[in-house]
């Protein structure tokens, strides 16, 4: 069972990124979406990189996805964040082109696999709600 590490290095939310980092307060994974072309993109930016529209903003995504790739960190790279832990690229169910880098927890590292269905949960540190993932319960798609 996952226990939060002693310490996490935290991002410094900006005007663009604060929705992403604080959406967890309301249990929402907020991902930027373009209202002109309808496509999701990440990280958040003031302009859609696909169609150049300025009409963009955060919207709640399903929080479900699949592991597109992962690695297991076996060395103590970051003080207070003991290995082993899984760093994964999560392909969002809402838009497979959007891939979040996060940790997948609550699963033994040897059982991690590409294609695994996962869902988001949030871990609060000060004014940041880190979106982390764990194996999905029920049907992933």
């Amino acid at each position: 069972m996952y226990t939060r590490p002693e310490r996490r290095l935290l991002p410094d939310p900006t005007a663009e990124s604060s929705a992403f980092w604080t959406g967890g307060r309301d249990g929402q994974l907020l991902i930027h979406r373009c209202r002109a072309c309808g496509r999701w993109f990440h990280p958040p930016a003031p302009v859609c990189f696909r169609c150049r529209s300025l009409d963009v903003g955060p919207e709640p995504a399903s929080g479900r996805g699949r592991v597109a790739a992962f690695t297991i960190n076996r060395q103590p790279w970051i003080p207070g964040f003991p290995p082993p832990y899984a760093v994964a690229m999560i392909e969002l169910a809402d838009e497979p082109d959007v891939r979040l880098v996060s940790n997948v927890v609550d699963v033994p590292v040897q059982e991690m696999h590409i294609g695994m269905a996962v869902e988001v949960f949030f871990e609060q540190w000060e004014d940041v709600w880190l979106p982390l993932f764990r194996p999905a319960t029920g049907d992933a798609r």
Binding site: L9, D12, V87, N103, L130
Partner: peptide
Amino acid sequence: AWDYPLGL
């Protein structure tokens, strides 16, 4: 900001 805190 995006990747490093999570161990990337």
